[in-house]
Amino acid sequence: MNIFRFAGDMTHLISILVLLLKIYATKSCSGISLKTQELYALVFLTRYLDLFTDFISVYNTIMKLVFIASSLAVVCCMRMHRVVRRSYDKDLDTFRHYFLILASFVLALLVNEKFTFQEIFWAFSIYLEALAILPQLVLLQRSGNVDNLTGQYVFFLGAYRAFYILNWIYRYFTEQHFSRWIACVSGLVQTVLYADFFYYYFISWKNNAKMQLPA
């Protein structure tokens, strides 16, 4: 464990806490893409298949449980909660996310560390996570204005993978035979997808104005 990875995990945790705060405090999920939340639940469920077979550390196990539980809780809340689900932007959240699942799975079959059930699903979860934010970014683009908590949620979600890139650089220089090129390339793509969001987020922060995404 190094400071970059720990900062990344904490940033990821903060993004989840901000999302939960937004939904429970405002009793609204407007501006949140249910499809992105579903993709993230799938990412965690397929990535942590080794939850009960490989024990890494208490920290690792607890964080995996928190990520799985929180992503499922958000999906259930957005689907079931009678108050929250009324605020879901159903007609704006129309990204065909099944294509993302299919593309990631096909790529995972072709490019993986080892052609085993667990490794294929691990690669699948890595590729899917890189694309999972797309429905959310499209939804924000369509809805134009971004409320503060949603903006902070997306910002922290993007920032966490940027910390992981620093972590991979650090591990590359400090550990022999460290090669996580599947996660590295995918993490780079993931972070680049946030680039324009980060730009408009920074502009709104500099002008102390409400965040506007160009229509």
């Binding site: 990875r5 990821h12 995996k64 080892k114």
Partner: peptide, 10 residues
């Protein structure tokens, strides 16, 4: 043998 390395990252 290339033991399948554990994924120690989240």
């Amino acid at each position: 043998t290339e033991a399948v390395r554990k994924h120690d990252e989240l």
